[in-house]
Write a protein that binds this DNA or RNA. Structure first.
Lengths: 112, 112
DNA sequence: CAATGTACCTTGTTATGCAAGGTAGCTTGC
DNA sequence: GCAAGCTACCTTGCATAACAAGGTACATTG
């Protein structure tokens, strides 16, 4: 109800982190990416993913190659570039910082 | 560098969760809120907070009362409404869901 | 009564998730 | 060999929100 918008907000940015993490493990194309995210209970549509992947690719964090399919048009298989690996490191650290901050707040570790 | 935008994206929504959590513990006004968030390493400016607090208050999740100060103009002390308590429960659950999803992805618990 | 400081608020910019709609390649059935 | 349907990729328009910058008002202090 009230929380819906905020909860999708919570997922922003985290989504990119998850995608980069998944791509660090294996080459993957968009539909598979959506399935992987869905099995981790992060719902996304392709209208969200394509712009995001293009953005990361233009930033040289991702690369892709075309691969033909047995059952339809060719697919773009994405993977991390070397820059992307470093970027993943930054995101990992940021994620740990954020979960740490949230835990501090929930536990009430205030400096007063 | 590259990660800056995404890292602020990560904090979106989480910020609101942290604020509601802090307000669940005690009445507090904006400057104190900023200090509390800062000691948990979540940097925010008042240009972010005022609109957010007003939005939550209009949604009847927060209430406030004026209190005079010894050293300046009066302050708005915010606290959770009853609805706000329920909302905090929703946000707590959402946060747990999200951290769970991220852990699944990082660990590679995919259903394939 | 001017200067300073504190507190609250608004406006404009930018980023991005998402829904909806569009293009094109490939297969299947006739 | 072509129409229909599926799969994959991409774009446009909208709504939301963090943030910087700038503004108003009240209180204290010299």
């Amino acid at each position: 109800m009230e929380a819906k918008n905020t909860i999708s907000q919570m997922r922003r940015g985290i989504l990119e982190f998850c995608i980069v993490s998944l791509l660090a493990k294996q080459e993957i194309y968009t539909a598979e990416l959506i399935d992987s995210l869905k099995s981790a209970d992060l719902i996304v549509t392709d209208g969200t993913l394509y712009p995001l992947l293009n953005r990361l690719q233009k930033a040289k964090l991702l690369q892709y190659r075309w691969e033909e399919s047995d059952s339809g048009p060719p697919r773009k298989y994405y993977s991390l570039t070397e820059n992307g690996e470093g970027y993943l490191g930054e995101l990992n650290k940021a994620w740990q910082d954020i979960t740490g901050s949230v835990e501090n707040i929930l536990r009430g570790n205030k400096s007063e």
